[in-house]
């Protein structure tokens, strides 16, 4: 209510620079790719679908499905409160537009920024880092794609293949974008979510020679 607390809030807002690259975390990837309207008048105008980004889907899920308040939801997504509010209103406006105008809703990977050192290109499947920390990653340094760039969360040791990786190593593999990580004993691959494109991972065994016992069996 008093002026000093108001100016303090302003200072906080100032610190939350919109340029700060923070991960807009998507905890649960959507189970569907979108919605289609039905009824006699649908499909007449062939209107463009409304694109709902992952982060918008996530904001809506946290607030209106899991019933968290904006403060808690912004913490979950790792963004400032004003940023969260902006993402959330965008989500609601898009859905309202789809309802009113009878458009399809397509859920797609939006600008999910990561505070990470590593990026993945879904187009040419390469991984790359960003040596110019103060510059935003705009395109793939290899193929030049600008659409399918995503940050990779976590330890690059997980996905940078090392010489020590033996034939027969179990990997969790992303069928969508080719991301791989070492399989962890006891955690089904399907439970793991691709940090790059949010798809569910599947099991993959590195190809190569069969384990020794198979060859031994042949001999006898």
């Amino acid at each position: 209510m008093n002026h000093s607390s108001l100016s303090l809030d302003r200072t906080n807002v100032h610190y939350m620079s919109p340029r700060t690259k923070r991960l807009r975390k998507v905890i649960n990837p959507p189970v569907i790719k979108g919605f289609k309207p039905y009824g006699p008048d649908t499909g007449k105008g062939k209107a463009e679908p409304v694109m709902l980004h992952y982060e918008e889907y996530e904001a809506l899920r946290l607030c209106d499905y899991d019933l968290y308040n904006h403060h808690a939801a912004s913490i979950f997504m790792g963004v400032s409160r004003p940023t969260f509010t902006r993402i959330y209103s965008a989500a609601r406006q898009k859905i309202a537009r789809a309802f009113v105008e009878g458009r399809q809703i397509a859920i797609e990977g939006g600008k999910v920024y990561f505070d990470s050192d590593w990026y993945h290109c879904g187009s040419c499947k390469c991984f790359f880092n960003n040596p110019e920390k103060d510059q935003k990653v705009g395109e793939c340094p290899l193929c030049g794609d600008t659409e399918k760039i995503s940050g990779v969360e976590g330890d690059p040791e997980k996905f940078v293949p090392e010489t020590s990786v033996e034939v027969g190593t179990e990997l969790c593999y992303c069928p969508q974008c080719g991301y791989e990580q070492r399989h962890q004993q006891g955690i089904p691959c399907k439970q793991e979510v691709c940090p790059s494109c949010q798809s569910h991972l599947t099991r993959k065994t590195l190809p190569g020679k069969q384990p020794a016992r198979h060859r031994g069996g042949r001999k006898h």
Partner: peptide
């Protein structure tokens, strides 16, 4: 692949790593 020890070296030289698998 780049070994774990390589990344800080290349970072300091501002050389970008591109991993093609």
């Amino acid at each position: 692949e780049f070994g774990m020890k390589i990344k800080p070296l290349l970072d300091s030289l501002k050389i970008q790593m591109i991993v093609v698998k």
